[in-house]
Design a protein around this nucleic acid. Structure first.
Lengths: 146, 146
DNA sequence: TTCGGTGCAAAAGATTTGCATATGT
DNA sequence: ACATATGCAAATCTTTTGCACCGAA
């Protein structure tokens, strides 16, 4: 996709979420698309700075929270305690390598079913969940078989 | 259990985890037992201050990390982003009411089995996991059926 | 034009660290 | 006695706020 069209897509994505379109917001959204993954506020700030040096730290933070409220991004608190954001897409959970930091996504309907039952048994109306698996990824297992 | 015996139990619990026994550490451990639940550093500090006013914030924080390293406590980062600690006991996951903040614990062997399979399929050696269910508890559903 | 969005600087929290002193073994 | 733990104050880090200015609709 050429740059022009790309920008338009980002802008309309913002508008479809009832967010006013601004240069900064487009940049932050573009950072999610281009950098990808699960990023900290700092990650995003550094990434965006290269393209839009005049953007403020404040704006990044404010925009991230705004995106979360608008359902356009999701906030995570993994074990390292750092707040991370990822662009919203189909529901999934995470698998994290504690050696290299890689983060994969997974989805399991069996687990979703099972947890629904668990919640019911305890009298809860289940609204959402988080499921994180921590381990060693294939690459790390291969490189050092300790 | 009378106070004396109680203190001894706490002390030996520390020693069995290779931690030197100090008044402060015993107090922090006692706070976990008496206050129970999933507490923030601040919670613990306030709770302990009533019994041992001379204890420092620093000590509470340092000790909590120490306890985690020693496998005597566990650290959690739930969705509210606040770091919470709980005394280590049999493995379990959590069910949190987003209305009243209540935290229940659960354990499901079916889920544990299913996630092991998921991890294997993605080439991961599963080491540990976290599973959090967020919803509305029975009490909150009863009080306001909105 | 008008209101919301931005950026900067400063504030606010939550931890952590340096260092002199106190304490457990 | 010796090594480690503690407490205070100050330093960090991360995130939030106040406020004047700027920009999008």
């Amino acid at each position: 996709m050429e740059y022009e069209a790309h920008q338009k897509a980002l802008a309309s994505y913002l508008e479809s979420h009832n967010l006013k379109r601004t240069k900064q917001r487009e940049e932050i959204l573009r950072a999610f698309v281009d950098a990808g993954g699960h990023l900290t506020g700092e990650d995003l700030y550094q990434f965006i700075r290269k393209r839009a040096p005049r953007i403020g730290y404040t704006t990044v933070y404010r925009t991230l929270k705004l995106f979360v409220e608008a359902g356009l991004a999701e906030e995570h608190h993994f074990d390292d305690g750092v707040t991370r954001y990822e662009i919203e897409h189909k529901h999934h959970d995470h698998l994290l390598c504690i050696f290299c930091g890689k983060i994969l996504e997974f989805e399991s309907s069996e687990i979703e079913e099972a947890q629904k039952i668990v919640a019911e048994e305890l009298g809860f109306t289940l609204l959402r969940h988080r499921h994180e698996l921590y381990g060693r990824c294939a690459d790390c297992s291969a490189s050092k078989q300790s």
